[in-house]
Nucleic acid binder design. Structure first.
Length: 209
DNA sequence: GGAATGATGTACT
DNA sequence: GTACATCATTCCG
């Protein structure tokens, strides 16, 4: 077990649900630098958010909420500050932070983390992957942190999976904005946010200076 | 190095 | 049947 617990870092503070609601794009930007922690029976694993994408309720044909609630996306329409975890391509899990008020259907997809705590646990969960890839990509980071569909709808302020906000928000010039990746519809909209120069990004040109 | 491919749940045509 | 907010592996140059 790591000595330095991620939820006792002095560079983060508790998430306030109200700060997510103003706009999902703003939330996606402000989540850069946040710390995501999962305390499970196997131990604690945590990483710093370095890549996010906003998915909106209106004029966003790439969003799961575009056609209203279903069994799968129900928590995306639920309370803000909770998790929306879904199965992607029948195999992978993707973790989102619900941002908009109940009934609206907006969320921020977390696409990559810088591993911080519980590296050995992550390595065991990611069997054979190099450290560089432990939390690279939305499916991979869920494996590394042990996040699965059971966490769908979890309250990220009180539950086993928690989100801690950076005390010092990333400066505008340290966040690269660009088009979302891995989608075909609305693929040109600048709704992806990346920590400039981070080596932990999933892919794409967003480490550009 | 890059492109193609298979795995496969959910939701749509 | 087809598309999809993915990833690891295989094949090719």
């Amino acid at each position: 077990m790591d000595v330095r617990r991620a939820d006792r870092r002095d560079d983060v503070r508790a998430l306030r649900v109200s700060e997510l609601a103003a706009s999902t794009e703003a939330a996606a930007r402000s989540l850069i630098g946040a710390v995501l922690v999962h305390q499970s029976v196997d131990g604690l694993a945590a990483g710093r958010v370095v890549e996010t994408e906003a998915y909106l309720a209106t004029d966003d044909p790439a969003s799961h909420s575009r056609r209203g609630p279903t069994a799968r996306n129900a928590s995306m329409f639920g309370a803000p500050g909770r998790a929306y975890v879904y199965l992607c391509y029948g195999i992978h899990r993707c973790f989102n932070v619900v941002t908009a008020r109940e009934g609206v259907g907006e969320a921020v997809l977390v696409r990559a983390l810088e591993p911080l705590d519980g590296l050995d646990l992550m390595r065991a969960r990611r069997r054979g992957a190099p450290d560089r890839d432990l939390c690279r990509g939305p499916g991979n980071l869920c494996v590394a942190l042990g996040i699965d569909l059971a966490h769908d709808g979890f309250d990220l302020t009180t539950g086993a999976v928690r989100l801690w906000m950076p005390r010092s928000p990333a400066r505008d010039e340290d966040v690269v904005v660009g088009p979302r990746v891995g989608i075909t519809r609305a693929a040109d909209r600048p709704l992806r946010f990346v920590l400039r120069g981070s080596p932990w990004i999933s892919r794409g040109p967003s480490t550009a200076r």
